[in-house]
Amino acid sequence: MIKITKPGLLTSVQDLGRYGSQKYGVITSGVMDTTAHRIANSLVGNDENEATLELTLLGPDMVFHEDTLIAICGGNLSPSIDGKPVKLWRSVLVSAGSKLKFGGCKTGCRAYLAVAGGFDVPVVMNSKSTYLRAGIGGHNGKAIQNDDELSIGKPSELSEKITKVLDAQRGEKKFVEMQWTISSDFIASSASKPQVRVMKGRQYDWFTTESQMKLFTEHFEVTSQSDRMGYRLKGPQLELQEKQEMLSEAVSFGTIQVPSEGNPIVLLADRQTTGGYPKIGQIATVDLSIMAQLKPGDKVQFVEVSHEVAQQLYLDREKKLHQLKQGIALKIRQESK
């Protein structure tokens, strides 16, 4: 069990999302940075879809009531255990009674805390994700509050092996980190103006040639009106050739839509199921993690990518993530001997 002693800015239980009910108007929710979430789960021996805690900018404080295998991935929100910094992107065994705290946000915007066995919350419509507005899923349908007690599920066989490897090195320490980590290929860039690849959207041709060009040549800034639902961007105004009304249709994670005032909105994890604004672009799935780690004030540059290349990038990335999972299992098998 984990007890929360400070909730942080916005901490919620999320998995890879609630799929299958969008036709009923039920949004997918789920983690913003799927790559960091999946790797955190892999490092503690969980299934990739297992629920993690998504932490935003200012992380929570918590106490572990039992020995717990954890991993923290994503943005660097300065985690420390009993005053000692903890490394990201690693398996970490935490001793019972230890306190995990987060300090300032050094890189990125969101971190993912995975625990071996996952968070034991009810599955609602096939998902453990918190749907904040409807008050369903997650821990009591809400963001994590002070004094919340989070139960942990049953660890997998692999989780137990990882724990054993770390336990052998622990001694009297409050926590022990794995010696090795994952390839830096998977860690979202912390460049100051990252590039994000974007395909042309379904209504790209409705926009003026000038706006089409500006989308791929100028910078856009993430404004303070940005949250899990979407990022409102500030930059050059994007204009339609002529005013056109469109009928609402499905949108996706990473859809870039443009309301009539001309400032684009990037739709993210808590997006509505359908939208009625023209879609100028669609972020390639492989670059969604970069977008999800931007915070208000950060700048981004969109780079055009074809639909074909975006698909190939996706297949390549999935292959690498699969190899990463196999690599972790193999390494643990060797070290357990």
């Binding site: 799929y19 009910s21 969008q22 609402s248 499905a250 996706s252 996706y314 297949l315 999935e318």
Partner: peptide
């Protein structure tokens, strides 16, 4: 994965890894 109807459209969300092909999904 799921389908989402609009006023005049149906969106299909699919898992490219479950599609066997030598070309693109």
């Amino acid at each position: 994965i799921e389908t989402v109807p609009g006023f005049t459209t149906v969106a299909v969300f699919y898992d490219p890894l479950k599609i066997e092909t030598t070309s693109l999904p």
